[in-house]
Simulated scan of single mutants.
Amino acid sequence: MNELPLVDLDAFAMVAHERSFRAAARKRGVSASSLSEAVRRLEERLGVRLLNRTTRSVTATEAGTRLLERLTAPLGEIASALDQVNNFRDSPIGTLRLNVPGIVAREILPPLVSRFLKTHPGITLEVMAEDGLVDVLAEGFDAGIRYEERIERDMIAIPVGPRVQRYITAAAPGYLDAHGVPGHPRDILEHTCIRHRFTHGVSLAWEFGNGEETITITPPACLIANTIDLEIGVAVAGLGIIRTFEEFLMPSIRNGDLVPILDAWTTEFSGPFLYYASRRHMPAPLRAFVDFLKVEQRQQAS
């Protein structure tokens, strides 16, 4: 039997692991048809079916399962070896895949990413923005960005972006003129509010603190959405009170469309962290991003 192309073996391993040509194609940044052709070539050369394909699923045959068991470790070692060579470049090449919350993608990453990519033009950055809890490694990401309470304890975490952020409360001037200005968080229970629902389906209660007292309420809502632009638009239209990240609301506050309320009950919390699994050989694009963030934090502190 002629030598088997490594690219076809790698394509088979990725599809078998993902149990989907489309999912494997997304992670590889190629077309599903190219992966299908690679697996077909491999099966023809081996003379055995490796994957059972239906319109809904892809599963490894017994032969495919045995092959995948033997391939996983060697392919991992090859990828690691190639990546170690990457470290000798002045600027590494490759793809860095990050999973981040919407607030980070919209308000924190743009200036950081711009500076990072100018410094490392050989790196392609893939960013998936979602607010739900994600197993970044299982989903094929190199690292994630989350807030401290959502980071697994066995992960390495380094600061990214501002070290303090705030949740503030606001409403349109017309709404406050018509319904009055709440003087205490409990007064909000007599108002109509605009609440956020995360992608995993949870709409969190509103928590307020003034340094001496903590109050948690679940206010009545005229809108519950997972799109911040819609939420702000409804608040600006005067339909209710909104509470969210300060960064989201400040443009509307500056131009007078919204007015901050309950300033004494603003909630402060630590900024986000980049987190990743401890590895003996860190991929070169991730190492470059970690080093870049460390320099950024030192410059902010100086």
Rank of each mutant, 00 (worst) to 15 (best):
V295I: 12
F289T: 00
H191K: 08
A32Q: 07
P111W: 11
I188C: 07
D10H: 12
H196C: 00
V295W: 06
R28A: 11
D131E: 15
D154P: 03
N86D: 12
I168E: 01
I78R: 03
A277R: 07
T244G: 01
G183H: 10
T119F: 14
A105V: 04
E247V: 05
I103S: 15
E139H: 13
N86L: 08
E149C: 03
T218N: 14
T54E: 00
G271F: 09
L230M: 00
L286Q: 09
E44T: 05
P283K: 15
R26E: 09
D131C: 15
A237W: 06
A81K: 14
G271Q: 08
I261T: 01
H179C: 00
P74E: 15
V160M: 05
G238D: 10
L189W: 05
G233D: 06
A105M: 14
P182E: 09
M1Q: 07
Q299P: 00
D257A: 09
P272G: 04
Q165I: 03
I78P: 00
V85T: 12
S114G: 03
L4S: 05
T72Q: 13
L75H: 10
V164H: 00
E246K: 13
G211W: 13
E107I: 09
I224Y: 01
I103H: 15
S302P: 00
I217T: 09
R106V: 06
E130D: 12
L230I: 10
G132E: 14
Y275A: 02
E3I: 12
R41K: 02
D229H: 11
D291Q: 11
L46R: 13
V15W: 10
G174R: 02
N210C: 09
P219Y: 05
V104G: 08
V104W: 03
G271R: 02
G29T: 00
H17E: 11
D154I: 04
P162L: 04
V48P: 02
P121N: 11
T216P: 04
H281K: 07
P101G: 06
E62Y: 08
G102A: 01
A60E: 12
Q165Y: 01
P101Q: 15
T65W: 07
S34C: 14
E247H: 06
P251W: 05
N86M: 00
F273N: 04
T169F: 07
M282L: 10
I241P: 10
A221T: 11
D154F: 05
G201M: 10
L274C: 00
N86V: 08
D177M: 05
H179N: 11
L42I: 05
M282S: 02
N52E: 14
L67E: 04
H281N: 06
L239A: 11
N255K: 01
E130C: 07
L286P: 11
L262H: 01
P162A: 08
C193T: 10
L223S: 04
E18A: 15
A237F: 03
G102C: 03
E190R: 08
F208G: 00
C193D: 10
W206F: 08
F289R: 05
P219W: 14
F116S: 14
A23D: 10
H120D: 09
F116E: 11
E213A: 06
V236M: 05
R298T: 02
N52R: 12
L71Y: 02
P185H: 10
V234I: 14
R22C: 15
G64F: 12
V127H: 07
L51M: 08
V104Q: 02
A138N: 13
A235P: 15
N87K: 13
